[in-house]
Design a protein around this nucleic acid. Structure first.
Length: 900
RNA sequence: GCCUCGGUGGCGGAAUGGUAGACGCACACGACUCAAAAUCGUGUGUCCGCAAGGACGUGUGGGUUCGAGUCCCACCCGAGGUACCA
């Protein structure tokens, strides 16, 4: 018997699908046909290609796409490349090769790898964010942001022209203002605006980074270089205007709770009150935000962030020197340093005082870097008795502490942050926290000292990067600082040709930023309009920009008039957005939040039909693998590691008593995410070569639940490979090519078949592909002893197999006499008459312990089943020892006798 | 510290509150073979027992229930997120 010739058959079908464009999604839609838009998070086209961890999600979505085609859905299943970004640019800087060249070569290699797994994408829709015709529309979306403002009354973005009209009618002075003055007012409202803001400046990379791109240690996420805070004029996107809706609309999407929670935490909504403290001897008032207005009576001092604009006003001459020194130091310190000694509180007294509106007492004003300018108002009322940070600070500097919430008896801690009755708090005394908050907020409003407010942790999105390989901004600058945008009709603004792509990297945190585009040829950089020379914006957009809307472009990728056709958009996005979006958790906050923000803006402006982009989100787990390090702690090639008996490590790595060696030297075993750095990556090309891609697909799905992280174990692949080869042996013979015949099917086999259809269908619907495969393996073992496979059984089996192992299934389908691909063949339906079983095993328990199993008719009445159960010898034995108190029968499942 | 998700045989894992360990790997034995591979079959949680059968068993300790891997409470361990956010 010849082995399954997987090389030939897989190549044959991949060629056939490609030539016939089997998986092309038509550009026109039938409104009455149900649709399924299934999307993978598109990859960065890396130079090293894929390892077996990457396609895990792609295989899962492919199975689903194939399944949905067979159940009559119009399926949109596209793939593309998030191709702007640092690695190609870094390579360009080092080797002088234009990033477009490396990017295109990498894309070609990854397309080859993706096609060799038999993925059923519509290859006519492939796009890259670096395509000029794609980033033209990224720039167009930026213009939409720039020309819009957020109207809090309508709770929606609106064209900036409407705001201008409104201001012109409301403000008497509007007509007399110059262009610059008007623009600086409008900039306060635009969704995209230039602002001098403290940014995360990374001199080593020569660029600024978004907060999200800076690690907790104050280093760059890419490259781990130190990051410094410094003010810089940069493009910002007003995502904070959408904080409330981004938070609220999490309720309408079907996403994993963990991801929703991460987004909620990132948005960081908190309710409280803002309170104004009059500064003693001045008209100034310090506004603070607090979540605990009920503790106002316990506010014994105030703290301003060192950058707070009122610091100079409240500082007295005798304290000026110390304050200036502290501010200087805070400004110069990188986030690394701040983090390092975050334990000890530091600060200085300004000499100024403010009046606590509740107690009437004058309390000292301090500055300290534990108060952050970027959150709330950059100032706090310090309530040491009910706040651990304030308590610590008060202890260090000997400031007064007054408890205003009574801690429970026996409380021995310092600050008490729990619930309890108010004390030392005048009209609040006795009230518990919730009531006290409400009462105090009402009092603040009545007395004109403050009001209830909501604050968010979310900051505006820093949108400029000092890089070459990104989307240019469609913006021009005049010498005097005026700004104008490039008209839509003149998009795209293409990247200029250059041979030196390096930013001005430096070790000096104070060196001025110098983006590569500063060296662009004058005929690109300078634009003359009506005799006036304008300079193009020299920053580019961050990598997140292109991935913010690619799912929309997939719907209509070649449209040259619009970013997406509205009718197609309504069909594919309706009613709840992308039907299934699969990718890694690493994008839980950044990508998903940014994309939702852009989507909402475009929705508000009338360009999109749905409030949310991704109706259902699914996170696949990581593929992990054992890795080995030598005595120096250096990772060694995991494939070459052996145990004490010389067996390859991958065959014995899960045994407890193994010792491991690399080239004769002992190594230690660890377990981690598959990748280059641990030298434990396995390439899909290897597996394809040795077992074929149907085996690779099945193994990746059979490893366990899609959402779980699980270990790759090359040894286990043989299991699903045996299944593939067994299917081949059972269905084919060498002579006639097919071992299938039109013969009668025994009822038992029909019942098995339909139970299998039921199981596989259910498992497809809940993406439980590992159990679907198990069901097929079980059913196949029933076919093994047969001389021929009845056609009635063979055809549905091949169809059930098709989404999982499409090459083998197509080949068998063709041999079964079908001229057409099975890609659109109807999915088998489980028939009720074959699902009904004649007898079922019922477990019989006595006092909850299994004593026997009896076969009964599932329709049999309870009395009969219980009688039969009691009659069983081993049950009777246990019933003798006591009195029967209770008998329970769950139809077709279990009987339980309670005896005492 | 806080939040989230996990913890089931030698390994990956299965199990609407109803027979724990489906299916696969590994291992053992048998068939085929001169032999090996491949293939086919049988067995395989631990302990006692020739067997029938019994006891124990889903991180630990409690609870709810006729019945708990599954629900509740406390704790231990692991992975991920987050961190002076007022």
């Amino acid at each position: 018997m010849a082995e399954y010739p997987f090389h030939d058959i897989e190549a044959k079908w991949q060629r056939a699908w490609e030539e016939r464009k089997t998986f092309r999604t038509p550009g026109t839609v039938r409104r009455d046909q149900p649709k399924f838009f299934v999307l993978d998070m598109f990859p960065y086209p890396s130079g090293v290609g894929l390892h077996v961890g990457h396609p895990l999600g792609y295989i899962a979505t492919d199975i689903l796409a194939r399944y949905k085609r067979m159940t009559g859905h119009a399926v949109l299943h596209p793939m593309g490349f998030d191709a702007f970004g640092l690695p190609a640019e870094q390579f360009a800087v080092e080797h002088g090769v234009h990033p477009r060249i490396t990017t295109e070569a990498n894309i070609a290699n990854m397309l080859r790898q993706l096609k060799s797994i038999g993925l059923s994408y519509d290859w006519d829709r492939v796009l890259a964010t670096t395509d000029v015709e794609y980033y033209r529309w990224t720039q167009w979306i930026f213009l939409q942001l720039y020309h819009s403002w957020y109207d809090p009354e309508a709770d929606s973005a609106r064209p900036i022209a409407e705001l201008e009209a409104k201001l012109a009618s409301q403000r008497a002075d509007w007509a007399h203002l110059g262009e610059k003055e008007r623009e600086s007012i409008l900039a306060e409202y635009r969704l995209a605006y230039l602002a001098e803001v403290p940014v995360n400046w990374c001199p080593a990379l020569g660029t600024v980074l978004a907060n999200e791109e800076v690690t907790n240690e104050g280093r760059s996420e890419r490259g781990n270089h130190p990051v410094f805070r410094r003010p810089m004029k940069q493009w910002m996107l007003r995502i904070t205007a959408y904080a409330d809706r981004l938070e609220k609309d999490l309720a309408i999407v079907d996403w994993p709770e963990a991801i929703k929670l991460m987004q909620r935490n990132w948005i960081g909504r908190s309710e409280g009150a803002s309170v104004r403290f009059p500064v003693v001897g001045s008209d100034e008032r310090i506004e603070v935000f607090t979540t605990r207005p009920d503790t106002l009576f316990g506010a014994t001092y105030m703290v301003l962030a060192p950058e707070h604009p009122l610091v100079d006003r409240v500082t007295t001459p005798d304290c000026a020197a110390a304050v200036a020194a502290y501010r200087d130091e805070a400004a110069r310190r990188s986030d690394v340093d701040r983090q390092a000694d975050s334990k000890a509180k530091t600060g200085v007294f300004t000499g100024g005082y403010a009046t606590n509106p509740a107690t009437g007492a004058d309390i000292p004003i301090w500055i300290a870097d534990y108060v952050l300018m970027g959150y709330g108002t950059g100032a706090i009322m310090a309530v040491p008795a009910q706040d651990e940070r304030d308590w610590e600070f008060a202890e260090v500097f000997g400031l007064p502490i007054v408890r205003t919430v009574r801690p429970p008896d026996g409380f021995e801690g310092k600050a008490y942050t729990g619930d309890g009755p108010a004390m030392n708090s005048g009209f609040l005394d006795g009230l518990h926290v919730a009531d006290a908050k409400r009462t105090m907020t009402e009092w603040l409003v009545r007395e004109g000292h403050g009001r209830g407010t909501v604050t968010y942790k979310l900051r505006d999105w820093l949108f400029s990067r000092q890089r070459y390989w990104g989307e240019p901004f469609p913006v021009l600058h005049a010498a005097d600082g005026r700004i104008r945008t490039v008209p839509e009709s003149q998009l795209p603004v293409e990247l200029p040709p250059m041979d030196d792509f390096s930013p001005a990297a430096s070790d000096d945190p104070d060196a001025p930023p110098s983006p590569p585009l500063r060296r662009a040829p004058d005929d690109w950089r300078l634009v003359e309009i009506d005799g006036e020379t304008w300079e193009r914006e020299l920053n580019t957009m961050p990598q997140w920009a292109g991935s913010c809307w690619y799912y929309l472009r997939f719907i209509d990728p070649r449209n040259s008039d619009r970013f997406v056709d509205p009718d197609l958009e309504r069909y594919w996005m309706g009613p709840k957005g992308v039907d299934l979006y699969v990718g890694g958790v690493e994008h839980a906050v950044l990508h998903l939040l940014y994309a939702r923000f852009w989507h909402k803006v475009l929705h508000d402006l009338g360009h999109l039909s749905t409030p949310e982009p991704f109706g259902r989100l699914f996170n696949q787990g990581y593929i992990q693998a054992f890795a080995y390090r030598d005595e120096r702690g250096i990772a060694v090639d995991a494939e070459k590691v052996v145990d004490q008996h010389g067996n390859p490590a991958y065959e014995v790595q899960d045994r407890p008593d193994s010792a491991y060696f690399f080239e004769g030297r002992p190594v230690t075993q660890e377990y981690g995410k598959m990748g280059k750095s641990l030298k434990n990556a396995v390439s899909p090309d290897e597996i394809n070569e040795r077992y074929g891609c149907d085996t690779l697909r099945l193994y990746e799905m059979y490893m366990g639940p899609l959402e779980a992280s699980k270990p790759w174990n090359t040894r286990d692949i043989i299991g699903v490979n045996r299944f593939i080869r067994r299917v081949w042996r059972v269905f084919t013979t060498e002579e006639s090519g097919l071992r299938v015949a039109d013969v009668d099917v025994p009822d038992d086999l029909m019942r098995s078949l339909h139970r299998t259809i039921r199981r596989v269908t259910d498992d497809m619907d809940r993406m439980s592909f590992n159990t679907a495969i198990a069901a097929l393996i079980e059913f196949l073992s029933e076919l093994v002893p047969l001389d021929v496979v009845p056609r009635t059984v063979a055809e549905p089996f091949v169809l059930l197999l098709a989404p999982l192992a499409p090459h083998l299934a197509e080949e068998l389908w063709e041999r079964l006499g079908h001229a057409q691909s099975l890609a659109y063949a109807p999915w088998p339906v489980a028939e009720a008459r074959w699902l009904r079983r004649l007898t079922v095993p019922v477990a019989v328990q006595v006092n909850g312990k299994l004593r026997a199993t009896i076969d009964v008719d599932p329709e049999a009445p309870e009395e009969d089943v219980l009688a039969a159960a009691k009659a069983h010898e081993n049950v009777a034995r246990f019933l003798e020892n006591g009195t029967l108190r209770k008998a329970i029968y769950v139809r077709g499942r279990i009987a339980n006798f309670v005896v005492s």
